[in-house]
Design a binder for these strands. Structure first.
Lengths: 304, 304
DNA sequence: GATTGCCATGACTTCTACTCATACCAGGTA
DNA sequence: TACCTGGTATGAGTAGAAGTCATGGCAATC
């Protein structure tokens, strides 16, 4: 038994696991049971003769062997897809770029860059999808996006260590802000002191495990009171406007809040810079991806 | 069912069939029965949704869809092999070239070029194998050799039409000769007239179907008398020396016949030029293959 | 200490992918 | 014409791969 006896299915399953980060999520995505995924991976590991994944409580991480196999599995999948396209008489993937972006890039930066790109390079076709920063990094490594706009927070270290280092370029670098109801006592000033944030009611995001809780000012020395939970920015901001509480807001969104909301910087705490970073895996970027990268940088520059 | 549901085994089988030219030969090579190969191909064709092979009485030929799938199957196999090498901690295939050569290139040209190459570029590792010209062309297309020394005869047209045209370069271009026993009446002159070849006894190669019969002068207007059959050049030439008959001999071998054999040109018939041609599939050749190609050309130039 | 979110595994079932034997088909030869 | 040869296809049977379900174990969190 050797890797040559692996199956395309096993490689696809492995890639999905690498992308989703857990067997369970990969199983759901593929329409299998978790147990089927577990067995596929076990079989693949037996074929390869080494562990591909390090099982940890919050999911799995690639081992060195896993990184090798993932890279090849992605290449194999690309060949198979290319064959399918050719057989269907479709054009190659030449002018296509797949972009991933994390939520707060979706309101300004990404649409703006896409509009610009369509004007300047109409031949480039972009497909895109939203995702959390860790999910996007896994997607880059799993080859399911070519380019990703991710978020980093202080201390802005390299976002993972699971393989060849990501190439990155900082798009924007500004500080987190708070959105307060216009009727709120704090709305009067031109900034908020971090001490004033104690005891406030917050409108938070889902605190689903692993991902940090969004919406509540980080580093408060108390357990925050989360009065409302919402995933959507527009909903959150309307809740703020309705006076239901405060929420944090990335600076890129500051310009597009509804009436009844004031956005203010926060002073007196540690730096809460939020970088939007463009990330990709291998240099050089293919031409269409490079065009998109330029458009994103241009949009970041004008938007700031 | 789509090509994405194909299996690595099926792709490997398909590639082997493309290389061997028949299901039966592929089955033998892979240790399967012919029926297993037939079913694998049928399944793959169903998955792809098109015929991959045109069944003909003497074997199979690739259809257009088959050419597409073969190219991708080769790329997939390369990825898998690369993964295996990486996992085993071996170096990549960087400095390796796989050469194919047809029989009469094996006595002079190939060893000479390899010796020269080892001297000038010791970092290049060459593996090589013998094969008939059609087999070598299939091997090129199946990606199992990188470079091939093949033979062509008049009218020297492109050797096949099964896919992207082969790149070629002529190495040598000389005429077929006959080897006669030194004791034979014809051995006295400095050439032989084609008319004198009638009624002679010949030492032939295996006339196994498809491949043309080697050893007997082509185009005789009689059924030749094949007194002995041998595959090996040295055996053939020793049979000639023993006075058992005549045989044809490619010019590259003229200089290395044993005592008791005379090699003579033939006049009076149509041109029986025999070209040795270097062939490969995709430009540009990777560096190590290019070095080998140069060495082969140099050897061809000095040898003539 | 209970709960939650992971992965592994035993028991069972289905379906895939072999083998063997045989049929079939086209060309070449007696 | 009939037969042989060298090829592919296919019916029948079987072993094993690859799913599902149900359950168990483990580590972190509340």
């Amino acid at each position: 038994m050797a890797i040559t006896d692996a199956s395309l299915v096993a490689l696809r399953v492995f890639r999905e696991v690498a992308e989703r980060g857990t067997f369970t999520a990969a199983a759901v995505a593929l329409g299998y049971t978790q147990s089927a995924v577990s067995r596929q991976i076990a079989t693949l590991e037996r074929a390869v003769g080494a562990d591909l994944l390090e099982r940890r409580h919050e999911g799995v991480r690639l081992t060195t062997a896993g990184q090798i196999v993932l890279r090849r599995a992605v290449a194999v999948a690309e060949q198979v897809e290319a064959a399918a396209r050719e057989l269907a008489g479709l054009p190659g993937a030449g002018g296509r770029v797949r972009l991933g972006w994390f939520t707060s890039a979706g309101t300004g930066l990404v649409p703006q860059a896409l509009a610009e790109l369509r004007r300047t390079h109409p031949a480039v076709t972009v497909t895109s999808r939203e995702g959390s920063t860790p999910a996007l990094i896994r997607a880059l490594r799993a080859g399911s996006v070519d380019l990703a706009v991710i978020a980093t927070e202080p201390p802005h270290r390299p976002p993972d260590t699971d393989g060849p280092p990501l190439r990155t370029r900082v798009l924007t670098d500004r500080s987190l802000m708070v959105a307060v109801p216009a009727t709120h006592p704090l709305a009067g000033g031109s900034f908020v002191d971090v001490a004033d944030l104690r005891g406030q009611e917050w409108i938070g995001g889902h605190s689903s495990g692993g991902e940090r809780l969004m919406g509540v000012w980080p580093g408060l020395d108390e357990r925050p009171v989360v009065a409302h939970v919402a995933r959507d920015w527009l909903a959150k901001l309307h809740l703020v406007a309705a006076g239901c509480g405060l929420t944090t807001i990335p600076p890129v969104l500051a310009g597009m809040v509804p009436a009844g909301v004031r956005v203010l910087p926060v002073r007196g705490g540690p730096d809460e810079g939020r970088r939007m970073t463009l990330a990709w895996l291998y240099d050089p970027l293919p031409a269409p991806a490079a065009r998109l990268a330029e458009a994103l940088e241009a949009a970041a520059a004008t938007g700031s």
